[in-house]
Amino acid sequence: MPEQAAVAEVMAELAALEDPRARAVNERHGDDHGVNLGRLRALAKRLRTQQDLAVGLWDTGDTAARLLALLICRPKAFERDGRAGLDGMLREARAPKVHDWLVNYVVKKSPHAEELRVAWTADPDPVVASAGWALTTERVAKKPEGLDLPGLLTVIEAEMKDAPDRLQWAMNHCLAQIGIEHPEHRARALAIGERLGVLKDYPTSPGCTSPYAPVWIDEMVRRRTGRAGP
């Protein structure tokens, strides 16, 4: 089937999955689509990996289509730069769920991930910078060799308090991850979190861990070691 026809057919399927209740829930989180994510994943499973179709769906600009594209693409097939590359895609990905899936499902699996991490973290656009911090958090947890952890804590201490929401959230996650994964930096991470108070009053559902870094760090350390604290 020609790509244009395939895209049209999938877009029709997505339109048929539109659910006003799902849209209402998604829009409360800044995502402008009305497709239940479980159904979206089922459709992706049926379509399997199709890079050309993924590119065509992404180019529609439709949020549900872009989410589906990220599920059926080949992460290593994307170039780093250009509008059709990962950098250009991220700068177009303003819906939070598209941004999150692009970073976690595609960029993290790309050979360009480290170059993009460095470039994005220093980007003046806070949404782009938040992607860089998300990639840094991944390295803090899985491949910290070569990272300047004290330097990261210094930047977080100086900039997180006044950062825009999405960037602040990403920096806070990095702060917590440093405290959880690296005992030698845990006391400083806890102290920074306590002094800044970022997300201290964030509403947390029963049974969930608060994103406030001192609570988050203590809880994860307790689960791993049976005790909290530095």
Rank of each mutant, 00 (worst) to 15 (best):
P2Y: 08
A5I: 05
V7S: 03
M11T: 12
A12L: 09
E13I: 06
L17T: 09
E18N: 14
R21D: 08
A22G: 02
V25Q: 15
N26Y: 01
N26S: 10
D32V: 04
D32A: 12
G34R: 03
N36Q: 02
N36T: 03
N36C: 07
R39A: 01
L40T: 09
L43S: 13
L43I: 04
A44V: 07
K45I: 00
R46D: 10
L47P: 10
R48G: 10
T49I: 09
T49W: 05
D52Y: 12
V55I: 07
D59E: 13
D62M: 00
D62C: 03
T63R: 04
A65P: 07
L70H: 03
L70C: 08
L71P: 04
L71K: 14
I72K: 04
I72R: 09
P75I: 00
P75Q: 06
K76Q: 08
G82I: 05
R83G: 02
A84T: 09
L86W: 05
L86K: 06
D87F: 11
D87Q: 12
M89P: 01
M89G: 05
L90A: 13
R91H: 06
K97N: 00
V103S: 01
V103I: 15
Y105T: 03
Y105V: 03
V106M: 13
V106S: 12
V107P: 06
K108E: 12
S110R: 13
H112M: 04
A113C: 11
A113V: 06
L116R: 01
A119E: 06
A119I: 02
D123W: 05
D123A: 14
P126T: 04
P126K: 10
P126W: 03
V127R: 15
V128N: 14
A129R: 01
A131S: 13
G132D: 15
L135Y: 03
T136Y: 08
T137Q: 10
T137V: 03
V140S: 11
K142L: 06
P144Q: 00
G146F: 11
L147A: 13
D148M: 11
D148I: 12
L149E: 11
G151D: 15
L153G: 13
T154R: 14
V155R: 15
E157N: 15
A158L: 10
K161T: 05
P164H: 08
D165G: 10
D165R: 15
Q168L: 07
A170Q: 03
A170Y: 04
L175N: 01
Q177N: 13
I180N: 14
E181F: 12
H182E: 05
E184T: 04
R186N: 02
R186C: 11
A187H: 14
A189S: 13
A189L: 06
A189K: 14
A189N: 12
L190P: 07
I192G: 04
G193I: 01
E194S: 12
L196Q: 12
G197Y: 09
L199I: 00
K200T: 05
D201R: 04
D201Q: 14
P206S: 15
G207Q: 14
C208T: 09
C208A: 13
T209L: 13
Y212Q: 10
A213D: 12
P214R: 13
P214L: 07
P214F: 06
P214E: 08
V215R: 11
D218P: 00
T225V: 01
G226A: 02
R227N: 08
